[in-house]
Nucleic acid binder design. Sequence first.
DNA 1: ATTCTGACGTGGG
DNA 2: CCCCACGCCAGAA
Length: 112
Amino acid sequence: MLKNKDFFQDVYDVVRLIPFGRVTSYGAIANYLGSKQGARMVGWAMNASHILPDIPAHRVVNRIGLLSGKHHFDGPNTMELRLQEEGIVVVQNQIQDFQKVFWDPALELGLP
DNA sequence: ATTCTGACGTGGG
DNA sequence: CCCCACGCCAGAA
């Protein structure tokens, strides 16, 4: 994956690769794309992703497994609901067994 | 042009 | 444990 061509597009590509029932973090994606400190941009990319289809933004949370972006979905519980549908347990915006469901692109896909 | 604000993360105190 | 400052960069005011 070449970095800094279309950062947003790269982010979308990675997000699309997140397997069903797994989640990852903004920082993990940023790290995979070579911008270790660019986690904020990943969040910004998600913000713009709501227009695009097939972007499972609900599978992207912050580094501690907190649903920091739930307010950007249709309803206040949409994100949590989608995760629950995939078998992920969420209690008060916090993903349970976060380590188990965590999917690291740099680890699973290999460093670019 | 300048300033501020984030769906973040790390490090220091 | 909590709080704060910094780095990152795209948009909005």
